[in-house]
Write a protein that binds this DNA or RNA. Structure first.
Length: 472
RNA sequence: GGGCCUGUAGGGUAGCUUGGCAUCCUUGUGGCUUCGGGAGCCAUAGACUUGAGUUCAAAUCUCAGCAGGCCCA
C-alpha cells in the first residue's frame, strides 16, 4: 500500500504540507511568500464550497455584490480601533505608473471600510433595512509569520456578509440566523465545530463582540474557520450610516458581519484526510464517483460502453462522475483517485459484466463490494450519503474526545485539544493560564452554561467556563 | 519579534567536509507489447535559488537577498 511519506498521526504538519501539493490542490512554487496558485482541482473544490455558501445566502435573502479591491486611505481611517487592528498588515499602493498618488490606496484586508461609506449613501429610511449583502473575493493581509497553504496566507479567498439593521435586537436576530447557516453549511462539509465568544482583548478590531467558529484539527490544535461579529453602532457612527425612523427621528444602524475563508479547505484536508490522501466530503467533491474500466484485450468495447452508460445514468441523478480511460494500469488509477479523495470508485471489468454486476469501493472505509448493475445509480447515491454520515461521525468523535472540562490547571496540563476551565472574568488570569498551558484563549461557550466553580488562578468565583487551545 | 535548518531537471536525491567531469530513481515525450492494486522494453528531453565576494577555477567556501521548513515569544 503506497502512502504519504509522512504519516498523518506522526507529523500532522508535515503530512499536511505534503498532501496539498500531491493532491493537486495548489502549487506553492509561486515566488511570493504566502501567495499560492490554485490548481484546477483545488479551485473546483473551493468553488463547490462557495456554491454551498451562495445557496445558504440565497435561502436567507442575502444579495451578492462586488466592491472594489482598492480602498482609499481616507475611507480606511474613519474607524480608529479597526485601523489599529489591521494597520500593520495592510498592503499600500503609493504609485500609479511613474506618479506618486495624492492619496494612498490599500488592498482590502476585509471590506468594512470600502462598503460602509457607500452604505451611508444607500441607506436613508427604515424601509431600506435590513440591508443584507455578501461577496466572495480575495483579501490581502501582510502576514509576517510562517505561512501555510489554505491556513495562513497573504492573499485570502474570503466570504464576507455584511448586514445593517434598525436596532440591536434585529442585529441579534441576524446573528441567530448566521449560526443556523453555519450549522447547516458545516454539516454538508461533514465538519463538526464549536462556537466561542472571543475574549474582549482578542475580538475583531471594531466589534462589540465576536463569535468564532472553530474546528479541531487532528494535531490537537484548533482552526478558526469563520467568525460572526456584532458591531452594534461602532462602525455606523464613524461612517454615518443612519436612517430615518417611522417616527421621523434619525438613528444609527446596528451592523453585523459574517466571514469564512479558504481555511474551510484546510479543515476538510486536515480533518478527513488520511495516509492515502484526501477524503473529500461528497457534497463538494469535484468528482464524486470515478469509473475505472478494467480493459482486457478483445473486450475493450463492451467494458467502455458499460462505463459510459453508467456515467450517463449518474449524470441524470446529478452525480458528478468521470470515466478514467487513461492508458495506464488500473492500480495506478486507484492510487491517483484515492490521493485526490474521490469518495467512491466504481470498477467495471469483463467478469463483472458477465454477472451483471459492478464493483464499488468506498474511499473512507476502503470497503469493496459488488452491486447489481441494474439500478446501480440509486445504490451509488445512497452510498455517497452513507460516506457523508461516516465522515461526520468520525470527525464528531474526534472533537468530542478532545474537549476536556476540568477544574484545575494541573488537570489540564496533560490534555490535548480544547480545555475548558472555570474563569473569573479577568484578563490576567486567562493570560496566566495561556502561559501555563502554552496555548491561547479561545473564548467562552456561547450557551449559558452555569459554572459554579472557582477560577483556578485567583480562586474567586467563576463567571463562566473559558476555553483554551493551541491555535493555528 | 527571536533562534535554528534547508534550497541541485516537473518531483525525490547523490556530490559539498578536502573547490576542477553533476549521480541515481521517478516524471515528461515518441513507439511496441500490456491492463482486477503503482507492468515491461527501446528511443529521447530535462537541473546546481538570485546577487556580490574569494579563486586560475565555485553546486561546493564567505556575505547578502528571495523562498521553504522547524522551534520559541
Amino acid at each position: 500500500m503506497p502512502e504519504t511519506k509522512t504519516k498523518k498521526n506522526e507529523d500532522f504538519n508535515e503530512w499536511y504540507n505534503e498532501i496539498v501539493e500531491l493532491a493537486d490542490l495548489c502549487d506553492k512554487r509561486y515566488p511570493i511568500k504566502g501567495m499560492n496558485i490554485w490548481r484546477p482541482y483545488g479551485w473546483k473544490l473551493m468553488n463547490n464550497v462557495d456554491g454551498l455558501i451562495r445557496c445558504e445566502m440565497g435561502k436567507t435573502n442575502h444579495q451578492e455584490v462586488y466592491f472594489p479591491l482598492l480602498i482609499p486611505e481616507s475611507f480606511f481611517k474613519k474607524e480608529e480601533e479597526h485601523i489599529e487592528g489591521f494597520g500593520s498588515e495592510v498592503y499600500w499602493i503609493t504609485h500609479a505608473g511613474t506618479n506618486e498618488l495624492e492619496e494612498r490606496w490599500l488592498l482590502r484586508p476585509t471590506s468594512e471600510t470600502a462598503m460602509y461609506p457607500i452604505f451611508s449613501l444607500w441607506i436613508r429610511s427604515h424601509s431600506d433595512l435590513p440591508l443584507k449583502i455578501f461577496q466572495i473575493v480575495n483579501t490581502f493581509r501582510y502576514e509576517t509569520k510562517q505561512t501555510r497553504a489554505f491556513i495562513r496566507v497573504r492573499e485570502i479567498h474570503f466570504f464576507e456578509a455584511h448586514t445593517c439593521h434598525k436596532d440591536f435586537d434585529d442585529a441579534e436576530r441576524q446573528i441567530e440566523e448566521d449560526k443556523a447557516i453555519a450549522d447547516r453549511f458545516l454539516r454538508r462539509l461533514c465538519l463538526p465545530y464549536i462556537f466561542s465568544k472571543r475574549p474582549d482583548w482578542d475580538k475583531f478590531a471594531g466589534a462589540y463582540y465576536t463569535i468564532s467558529i472553530d474546528i479541531l484539527m487532528p494535531s490537537g490544535r484548533t482552526l478558526q474557520i469563520g467568525s460572526i461579529h456584532q458591531y452594534r453602532e461602532n462602525f455606523s457612527k464613524s461612517y454615518e450610516i443612519s436612517y430615518e425612523t417611522e417616527e421621523g427621528a434619525h438613528a444609527y444602524c446596528h451592523q453585523t458581519t459574517y466571514g469564512m475563508s479558504e481555511r474551510l479547505l484546510g479543515a476538510i484536508i486536515g480533518v478527513h484526510g488520511d495516509n492515502k490522501g484526501l477524503v473529500i466530503p461528497p457534497e463538494v467533491a469535484p468528482i464524486q464517483v470515478v469509473i475505472i474500466p478494467i480493459i482486457f484485450k478483445g473486450k475493450e468495447q463492451s467494458v467502455m460502453e458499460a462505463c459510459n452508460v453508467l456515467h450517463d445514468k449518474l449524470k441524470d441523478e446529478n452525480i458528478r462522475s468521470r470515466v478514467d480511460a487513461r492508458e495506464i494500469t488500473p492500480g495506478n488509477k486507484y492510487y491517483d483517485w484515492e490521493l485526490k479523495g474521490v469518495p467512491l470508485r466504481v470498477e467495471i471489468g469483463p467478469r463483472d459484466l458477465e454477472k451483471n454486476e459492478i464493483v464499488i469501493v468506498r474511499r473512507d472505509t476502503s470497503e469493496k463490494r459488488p452491486i447489481p448493475k441494474k439500478g446501480a445509480e440509486k445504490t451509488i447515491k445512497g452510498e455517497l450519503d452513507k460516506i457523508a454520515v461516516t465522515l461526520f461521525n468520525n470527525a464528531d468523535n474526534l472533537l468530542n474526545e478532545n474537549i476536556h472540562r476540568v477544574l484545575t490547571v494541573d488537570e489540564a496540563k496533560n490534555k490535548k485539544g480544547i480545555i475548558e476551565l472555570p474563569w473569573c472574568g479577568k484578563e490576567g488570569c486567562a493570560l496566566e493560564v495561556e502561559d501555563i498551558l502554552e496555548g491561547n484563549t479561545l473564548g467562552e461557550p456561547i450557551e449559558n452554561v452555569e459554572c459554579g466553580h472557582t477560577c483556578p488562578i485567583c480562586n474567586k468565583p467563576a463567571k463562566t467556563w473559558m476555553r483554551f487551545a493551541r491555535m493555528y
